[in-house]
Design a binder for these strands. Structure first.
Length: 488
RNA sequence: CGGGGUAUAGCUUAGUCCGGUUAAAGUGCACGUCUGGGGGGCGUGAGAUCGGAGGUUCAAAUCCUCUUGCCCCGACCA
């Protein structure tokens, strides 16, 4: 039987954790709140990175790298920004250790004149740098991305979803007009949407954050929100229109075509290793991880069945031919010829790890010129002829990717509701899912609703659905429905 | 940061209330063997000074004091 994975229906968080551990994605480390991303988990991140990185570059962005440390004074230059992050910053105060009778201690004589903050995000150090880079409208737009780690000192952490240190990309762009910066933020939002839907096979809602939920220092925050199998929402990516807030805080001006000085307009945007958590909670089942083919470190695993050395030789020879053919078609293929593990053991192993397709070949198959083909998403297996295998695989890979997206979409629509009555709203929030409801637009109402139901506004949908109504809580007038949900 | 729990072999746990020989099991690991189309069987072996420090006692995993880590529940968050 499979490794004991807690059933989703029994305890969703435990199930989530079991998947991460048993699929060998990550584990807790010696440092509280920080995880070790294991090779298999990191391979998924590498796939994500390479696809996203290509998408950024295709839209004119370039990569760079800024320091891990930020002078404390920088962080405090933008008032809202420092308010938002102050409570979760790691601070470097000393630069040397020394020996003492109590062992190694921090050398009290090695105190930094100005403390350094381990970046919780890089807006401040980047805008301090941009001041030097930007003089003229000819220097704009500046479209820079960085792949980096950041640290936010979280009280409660969960593997991938919230850790003290995490990996992400952060884009920081500078523009000569408000509209261009705003358009950039939206362009990126739709890149995220496309990436998450096409590659991770997770349907998302695009929208605007309420003022209460927006990024500290932004004028507006856009987001993509995904629904997890337990009915809770996960913010999968954010894109901010920063206005001139950071340009003003760091005095970044450019000369326009008329020779007048103006503050630069900005955007910033990011997705993180949290996406891996979202991926797990979107598709996986009680047997383990389920990966969409586009992201799977191994898309196809090949396993031999044999009873003696001669059969082993015959079967692996055939499988090696298959594997090479599949590699010629650019599939990521894993051949597991280990004699130290039984076939059944390997089956379970790759199921837990979510490998989309498994090909099994034994003496019987060679005789019949067939191979046993198993697809992880439906757990169905059948025997298919060898002669048309490449085409069969081509179709199947596409089909699995689509099936995962369709399944998740179906789940989404089955768990998305309208509500116009507060009692009804409460019960729907309690059962989980996205609830579209009217809201009077005030932060007070938003707070009150959160207090009463634990639900927050996930986003104000971008498609402007002009549907006047009255606020679910206060009855005051509302121009459109917004999306409520409990969230991660 | 507040409330609750927990710490025994690599991992999961029993034993603790009510102190008493050599601390127990499953799993994993090593070796042998039969096996091999769904985590296989049998046998052998290695592996824990019971989170740490102090105390009570003839005797402590077990009782007392202090301490540290981790987990869960709240407030906060990509």
């Amino acid at each position: 039987m499979s490794k004991k994975i807690t059933k989703r229906s029994e305890n969703f968080s435990k199930w989530y954790n079991d998947i991460i551990i048993h699929a060998d994605l990550a584990e807790n480390s010696a440092v509280r709140g920080c995880m070790v991303i294991k090779p298999y988990g990191f391979a998924i991140w590498e796939e994500m990175k390479s696809i996203l990185d290509r998408m950024f570059k295709d839209t004119g962005h370039v990569n760079a790298y800024f320091p891990l440390f930020i002078p404390k004074s920088f962080l405090s230059k933008e008032a809202d920004h420092v308010d938002g992050f102050a409570k979760e910053c790691a601070v470097v105060t000393h630069y040397r250790l020394k020996n003492s009778d109590k062992g190694i201690i921090v050398d009290p004589d090695a105190k930094l004149e100005e403390e350094l903050i381990v970046r919780p995000t890089s807006e401040t150090i980047i805008w301090d740098t941009y001041r030097k880079w930007i003089k003229s409208y000819r220097d704009l737009p500046l479209l820079v991305n960085q792949w980096a780690n950041v640290v936010r000192w979280e009280m409660r952490t969960r593997l991938f979803l919230r850790t003290a240190e995490f990996l992400w990309q952060e884009g920081h762009t500078a523009h000569s007009s408000q509209n261009e910066a705003l358009e950039e933020a939206k362009t990126i939002l739709f890149i995220y949407k496309k990436f998450i839907e096409d590659t991770l096979a997770m349907p998302v809602l695009c929208g605007l954050k309420s003022q209460r939920e927006k990024f500290a220092g932004a004028v507006d925050t856009f987001c993509v929100e995904a629904l997890m199998q337990d009915g809770k929402a996960l913010q999968a990516g954010t894109s901010h229109f920063l206005g001139q807030n950071f340009a003003k805080a760091f005095d970044v001006k450019f000369a326009n075509k008329d020779g007048n000085l103006e503050y630069v307009w900005a955007s910033s945007w990011g997705v993180s290793t949290r996406l891996i958590g979202g991926l797990v909670m979107s598709h996986s089942d009680d047997f383990g991880l389920v990966l969409p083919p586009k992201l799977a470190p191994f898309q196809i695993v090949l396993i031999p069945i044999y009873h003696n050395q001669q059969e082993y030789k015959n079967v692996t020879n055939e499988l090696k031919k298959l594997a090479n053919n599949l590699r010629l078609k650019n599939y990521r293929v894993k051949e597991d010829y280990r004699d130290t593990h039984k076939p059944g053991w390997k089956f379970s192993e790759y199921e837990v790890k979510g490998v989309p397709i498994r090909l099994v070949m034994g003496p019987r198959d060679i005789e019949n010129q067939t191979v046993e083909l198993f697809r992880r998403d439906t757990m169905k297996k059948n025997n298919v002829p060898l002669d048309n295998l490449n085409n069969t695989i081509d179709t199947l890979i596409v089909d699995i990717q689509e099936n995962l997206f369709n399944k998740a979409s179906k789940f989404n629509s089955e768990n998305t509701f309208n509500s116009d009555d507060f009692e009804d709203f409460k019960s729907k929030i309690l059962q989980g899912g996205f609830v579209f409801a009217h809201w009077d637009g005030s932060s007070e109402t938003e707070d009150e609703i959160k207090k009463l139901t634990k639900a927050t506004i996930r986003c104000i949908p971008l498609e402007d659905i002009h549907e006047p109504g009255s606020c679910i809580l206060t009855g005051k007038p509302s121009a459109q429905r917004v999306v409520f949900a409990k969230s991660y």
